[in-house]
Design a binder for these strands. Sequence first.
DNA 1: CCGGGCTTCTTTAGCGATACAGACGCTCAG
DNA 2: CTGAGCGTCTGTATCGCTAAAGAAGCCCGG
Lengths: 355, 355
Amino acid sequence: MVKVTQQDIAKVMGVSVMTVSNAFNRPDQLSADLRRRVLDRAVKMGYTGPDAVARHLRSGRTNTFAVVFEERLSYAFSDPFSVAWLAAFSEVMEARRASIMLLSVPAGDAEALSAIQDAAVDGIAGLCGDQPAMVRARERGLPTVYCTMGHPLGAEPLSGDYVAIDDYAAAVEVGQHLRRLGHTRVSLLVETAYRGQPALSEYRPDELSGLVDAYAGVGYFDTLHRVRGVLDGLGDAEVTVVVAGTNSGASGQAAGALVLDRAHPPTAVVAVSDVMALGFMDACRQRGLEPGRDVSVVGFDDLPESAAAGLTTIHQPVRDKGRLAAELLLDPERTERRIILPHELIVRSSTRPVA
Amino acid sequence: MVKVTQQDIAKVMGVSVMTVSNAFNRPDQLSADLRRRVLDRAVKMGYTGPDAVARHLRSGRTNTFAVVFEERLSYAFSDPFSVAWLAAFSEVMEARRASIMLLSVPAGDAEALSAIQDAAVDGIAGLCGDQPAMVRARERGLPTVYCTMGHPLGAEPLSGDYVAIDDYAAAVEVGQHLRRLGHTRVSLLVETAYRGQPALSEYRPDELSGLVDAYAGVGYFDTLHRVRGVLDGLGDAEVTVVVAGTNSGASGQAAGALVLDRAHPPTAVVAVSDVMALGFMDACRQRGLEPGRDVSVVGFDDLPESAAAGLTTIHQPVRDKGRLAAELLLDPERTERRIILPHELIVRSSTRPVA
DNA sequence: CCGGGCTTCTTTAGCGATACAGACGCTCAG
DNA sequence: CTGAGCGTCTGTATCGCTAAAGAAGCCCGG
């Protein structure tokens, strides 16, 4: 069974290919009668409708937009923040009848970058910063939108659009909040930058340069901004940065095992995401420690479950991020293309004055 | 800034287009020296690499596979069962360097069906039964895989591949289990078949024909099999079918409000999914009723959270479903193309003998 | 009866890439 | 000295569709 094309129909009917094409796409360009006959014949011949790929080539557009993740896709589906972002993103895309392609380009996997090259899409969005996949996409001439503010080191001239919150300012607020409560021994939990990065290692602020490069390299600008902000907000407090593991509850728990069992545990812990913070709170309770009373905990994101858990956190408008990212991709004409959304420090029971 | 093509490079360098193409794709077809010069020149001219769409047209393959949902995508991301399936599906696709496209074709939305026509993909998978989108995809000549056994009414000759469990057999086990425990007044909670279907309406078994058509029409074969199986397994028990709402915890709660507050509430409730069953259990507790003791509850799927909740349910291998669906799409040669996976009735504390 | 304007259909010219079938020069066995 | 065989490179023909411009017939006012 060979593929039937518009050409075949045209030949059989003795009309031009263009007429067949018009029968499908521009009814006003031919008589209703001929159109009907063409369509009937098409069905009879087993024609399955205009080929999507050929049409895309001809029109130069695919009406498909990619979302790129730096992790395996299964992670993206398991992270509540990603899911909420995706949901908002997809709602806008669906409303505009655009399709969504999911791409996974793990940090450091050079070969996977070719997925960006091979993707037949009109634009690419990402939840993180200006990661390598984004850069590559722009080299290909594709519009990109990422969801973290520009380069934290000011090292590279910024390109590409983004929708973000001011993570640095938010993190400063977190640091100051803890400082005001009297916390002077604080641990800061961050996720790993790439698959295989040694986890559960701890750094003092003066040892961070290697880490900073790693995070900048993969586009985790939000993490960098948050680390810097918390450090600045805490002033002269004694801070350690703990690379806990992937961005998950389990990593937060593991970090708890690392810092809670020592002789002088931190009086407060900041995690760069709520999932980690919630995991850390579990670790506390497993040790009979009450978050807030025995150790203060702060997160970032303000997931729905964070309210129930009483977690102090930075609220950020996830859905707006997803929605606006989609809108920026869909409307190249839109002029405001670097959007900073408001954030808010939500103080709950997980932070209290140091005893 | 106009688009640079292989042709431009060829013209400038005085070589054939084919040589340029070979420089990118078949290094063995030209001398290393010339290849280098071509690639260098390409970079210099701002060529961004072979165009994905043109390549897809020429090769006849896109290496992209679609997953189609009958709901808005935001639902797909919120349903734990969908997410688990997607995760497994995507792992296989990622390993084979194939891309995933997400399509949403809400039941009844004829216009959205055109998304199937316009998708530049090599195959389509769906979590439900042989819904209209699947049929359309096969009309287009695309391989399809769905995840529910064949047509429950035996009305239509089956086409298309599937990976499923024997929902009917599983449901019979559920019915018999309850029957053995002495339950003779049972409500069966089902999700709505389409957006806008009146929710929280209740039917007796002899009133189901309209419902059955609705579910068959949108490909919810699993629901139909489960309803029939539970009815058959329960024998002469007094059963009502409650259309609770979308497949969500909220619907389960709402159904609870409907059936628990009456003079003679059911002694057991079966929901066609764990999310609904868990929601129903919440409704019980809100009324001071203890699932298991005061009313037995059974679900389908065996989500991770169901174990913690003590919910009796049918375990099904979600991940295998997702994995095999992907493998069927990727390997057209594979001979076994209608796969029935094992299920298991997991009895927990939510079902007990009737008092 | 002429010519402008409308409808309806056709022709031409690609979109950007790759498969395929050579063609050219060179080496080397016979 | 010849011709088979190899490594390189070229020309052409698509892949399936559609934008744009052109041509044929028709209607109509002047």
